[in-house]
Design a protein around this nucleic acid. Structure first.
Lengths: 342, 342
DNA sequence: TTTTTTTACGCAATCGTTGCCGGTAACGAT
DNA sequence: ATCGTTACCGGCAACGATTGCGTAAAAAAA
């Protein structure tokens, strides 16, 4: 079952012209007479001719397609980012192919290989929490593949990056918990190898220091799979709740972790915020409906997607190799709700 | 800035063979000697050769790409469906291009034109709530473009379809509200032109009839934009709450509508389920955390995506035109929680 | 040894589009 | 009459991979 589109040759045959003339007429070349152009355009219009982008890609050695690698589409932050990416890409005639690693290094590698073999013109990447080995990305970067990182960036690769001020976001969240009266604040975050985990940990620590609270390793839990499975978070919670004195506040550093932690607290019938206050990174649009309504740090996800795409298109369409890369840092927003208000 | 991949010609030059021989060696043709194959394969392996899919597409007149049109990625139901679509597509060496209409007919048309001009091999579509004119889709279908509809299907086009049993889902939900003691049950649903809205309305009505409750038009509200903006839902709610006697139960027929309605009830400080019970279609993974925990009808979104893709691949890879189409109907699941338990 | 068959490879065309070169006709200038 | 210009258009080649056809050399059969 095939869907046959009409080609330049069809128009050439019908108009008794050569393919090259038709091509030029369609591209409004000055070498073609007005009359010929009229005939060709009329015919093309009638048959609803659309140039075959595959043939164009082959000829121009570019696909007008960008590849996106995120860990999970069904995650508010990333789906919002993707919206931003698509909006800019579409406006510039670019196509977007989305892949997800589901926090698996192996799947990420497969995605990258797939996308590059599919001849994408550039990549927008947020790495998985399993990704320690960045050699493939390095390789692609060196070979000239335009890459923009966002959110979970790879520090050692020098290219455009889009992030939020994770340090200050975490600082704000932690400070807010302190000001709400919490004395022992736990942090549950992603794998420590991730850039965002490092920055958020630093912000958390800085807020503690600032307010004269002693930092304790025992109150910081890392989730290697970033909350993909509940078990990981439950283990972390069990450990935290075993501490004496028990934490009276938890700062969670990702969407999934935040909701899993709240669920865990519900299951254990621990009152939020009365017994334990909760503040978390989350871009979900329904956290105001949670029980209790969640205090969250949100990221300008859509804007991040837009920005990353603009930067990528700059790279792709730059005539000469770019060596001057920038890291754009946007700001987070703290939305105070009940979960942090004992 | 260009990323140059290695081609068959590079291998040909290096091995002193012709491009055709290299091609045949790579495809393990019997016309090529074992020794030559070894040399070629070794070299290809060393340089990490990957055939250029664009060139292959041009030659084979297929892109191994499927286009997806949904109204919104950042919606649990659709993002889960997309996960299902991608999993099957990838396993079969197919690429997925996702587009969103955001409930706009115009954007949907643009998406369809874009995808077909991009030479996708087939389409998976869930139409927008604005879509009354299906002529473009009809046209594509007639011209031989393989199409599979899911969720919001187009009844008048005869092709494969994947849906859930919306009638019985709505029936269950409504009956559950009745059994929970509700006497006046309102329905807030999508634009009535949508297939799912019709089926869900019918299920709602059937449950009322079955239990001897009179149906009233005043208790049914349609949201043309399917809950894309809160205003639409607030208007519907104001109207419903103005009824006397006021509804004591609401059945909401989509993800977005459900959360907007709950938010509206919160704002109006109406106790759920005490004053008004709430049951809604939702595939969000956090409705158990809502205040109160939501009773929901969930759909097997991932499976729907998988199934739709399998059906589409059947169409695409079928040698002869397919005339025998099927409509696969999966079942919904009612998850009872607090919001319906006065 | 001669003829036939088999093996193993190259040539050229193809997919749709476009850049480059070349060619022709018309026209004015010399 | 000859040359140069300009306007307009066609042919060829190429992008990378694939394939039908042709053919030299090697092997087998006569």
């Amino acid at each position: 079952m095939k869907f046959e589109a009409i080609t330049i040759k069809d128009i050439a045959k019908a108009t008794q012209l050569s393919a090259s003339t038709v091509s030029r007429a369609l591209r409004d070349s000055s070498e073609i007479s007005v009359e010929t152009k009229r005939i060709v355009l009329e015919y093309a219009e009638k048959l609803n001719y659309k140039p075959n982008p595959i043939a164009q890609s082959l000829k121009e050695r570019r696909s007008r397609t960008i590849g996106v690698v995120v860990c999970e589409i069904a995650n508010s932050f990333f789906s919002q980012t993707i919206n931003g990416i698509e909006s800019i890409a579409w406006n510039n005639g670019y196509n977007v192919i989305i892949t997800q690693s589901r926090e698996s290094f192996e799947r990420e590698q497969l995605s990258l290989r797939y996308l590059t073999s599919r001849s994408v013109d550039g990549l927008i990447v947020s790495v998985s929490s399993e990704t320690k080995d960045t050699s493939l990305l390095q390789d692609l970067h060196i070979k000239g593949m335009p890459i923009v990182f966002f959110d979970r960036i790879v520090e050692e690769i020098n290219t455009h990056k889009v992030i939020v001020d994770n340090f200050s976001g975490a600082y704000q969240a932690t400070e807010h918990l302190i000001k709400s009266g919490c004395k022992r604040i736990a942090l549950i975050t992603n794998d420590p190898s991730l850039s965002i985990a490092k920055d958020r940990l630093a912000g958390y620590q800085a807020a503690l220091v600032k307010h004269g609270i002693e930092y304790s390793d025992a109150l910081v839990k890392y989730c290697e799979q970033g909350g993909m499975n509940a078990a990981e978070i439950n283990t972390a919670m069990d450990s935290l709740l075993g501490e004496t004195p028990r934490p009276d506040g938890i700062f969670t550093a990702s969407d999934k972790i935040t909701s899993h932690v709240l669920r865990n607290l519900h299951e254990k019938k621990i009152a939020v915020p009365k017994e334990i206050a909760l503040v978390g990174f989350s871009n979900s649009e329904v956290t105001d409906l949670f029980s209790p309504a969640l205090t969250v740090i949100t990221q300008p996800a859509f804007e991040m997607g837009e920005l990353a795409t603009k930067l990528l298109l700059n790279l792709i369409e730059s005539k000469r190799p770019v060596t001057d890369f920038e890291t754009q840092m946007l700001t987070t927003k703290l939305i105070v709700r009940k979960s942090s208000n004992p």
